[in-house]
Amino acid sequence: MNTRESEFLSFVSGLLGRELNSLDLRQGDVSEWDSVMHLRLVLELEEKYAIHIPIDQVPKIASLRDFFELTGGKA
């Protein structure tokens, strides 16, 4: 895992309130990741990485890797 991935996971872990150690975790794997948290992740990642995630992309995000790639990271 590179520095950028670690930083991403650390940030998302803080939002979800639990330690996450893999980009392959999916929404159903993390009980704290409900629909409200899904939108919170979108908003927080948009702000942190100065990106915009179009509304029609948001429902397609199923894993942390999907989020990571939208931030410009290549896992």
Binding site: D34, S35, V36, H38, L39, I55, D56, V58, P59
Partner: peptide, 14 residues
């Protein structure tokens, strides 16, 4: 179903 309704708005309504 928050995910379902969001999907409806983001895709079908758009």
């Amino acid at each position: 179903d928050g995910f379902g309704v969001f999907r409806f708005v983001a895709i079908d309504v758009v």
